[in-house]
Amino acid sequence: MLLPILFIFFSIAVLGFALLVVTTRNMFHAALFLVGALFGVAALYILLEAEFLAVVQILIYVGAIATLIVFAIMLSRNMMRRDIRAANDQWVEGAVAAVLLFALLVLVLSRASWPTVTAAAPPDAIPGIGKALVSDYVIPFEVASVLLLVGMVGAIIIARERE
């Protein structure tokens, strides 16, 4: 009874914040609304009893990525002008593409056969995640670290070149 209400509440919050992100004319506000949407998603993860995902969502997306976005906004001088146009000349094409993508997603999602799990989530799923990371998913685990390293190297090269 309570869970569906909470689910609807957080879903509306996520969608509302997401809408504000794309409509606001102020880049800094857009970043803050994005943080709001990310928090809503974390709350949805908790409703799914995926607490590790929820905390990673906040740690990485709010703590790291959103901060990086704000820094990037601050570094781009023109973006800090208070009012910039939220849309440009290509908004019609963009809208069409977005609607088409949405239709495609709805089509795929409604046709997919979702596996249903009847068993309750384990009381502590974290050891399971840890085991999976170093057994079944060991290649993605290591590749992820190389990928992050490459990203960092690239950024350092670009930043150093400018000086």
Binding site: L32, V35, E51, F52, V55, I58, L59, G63, T67, D124
Partner: peptide, 24 residues
């Protein structure tokens, strides 16, 4: 919580956002 330690670290990131908001 099963994720107690990470919960503490994650909440710290809200403080970071608040600092940016105050400064900006």
């Amino acid at each position: 919580l099963n994720i107690g330690v990470l919960y503490i670290v994650a909440l710290g990131s809200i403080g970071v956002m608040a600092t940016l908001m105050a400064g900006w």
